[in-house]
């Protein structure tokens, strides 16, 4: 697409070519098990917070992997950290530490 220096509408695609993968790399260094997710949704289904609000832990770490960070910043704050997700994950993803790592990423990378 020709870049005119401005756009009329915001591009709504996940722009993998211009994604910000610093966050993903940061998080992965702290919690390598982020790579093990197969997107089964059991974490988000059992989630204590998700029964009260739109909060989807599965999407959070999938989105960060796609290089999209803005949409998760506010979301991350809703986690109660109870650990049910981790107790149910069939892949052994260390979800609580993943949340901590994502928080750290936002703290340190802005």
């Amino acid at each position: 697409m020709i870049d005119f220096g401005y756009t009329l509408t915001k591009d709504r695609q996940l722009d993998y070519d211009h994604g910000d993968f610093r966050y993903f790399r940061f998080v992965k260094a702290l919690e390598p098990s982020i790579d093990l997710c197969i997107g089964c949704g059991s974490c988000s289904a059992t989630c204590s917070a998700a029964q009260f609000t739109d909060f989807n832990i599965r999407k959070l770490h999938t989105v960060i992997r796609r290089g999209d960070i803005e949409s998760i910043k506010a979301e991350l704050r809703k986690c109660m950290f109870c650990g049910k997700c981790q107790l149910i994950c069939p892949r052994g993803v260390n979800l609580r530490n993943l949340i901590l790592a994502m928080n750290r990423a936002i703290e340190q990378l802005g």
Binding site: G41, S44, A45, C47, Q51, N56
Partner: peptide, 12 residues
């Protein structure tokens, strides 16, 4: 039962 409909991204 509780699951996530992962294709809509909503708990179900």
């Amino acid at each position: 039962l509780k699951t996530e409909d992962t294709l809509t991204g909503k708990p179900l």
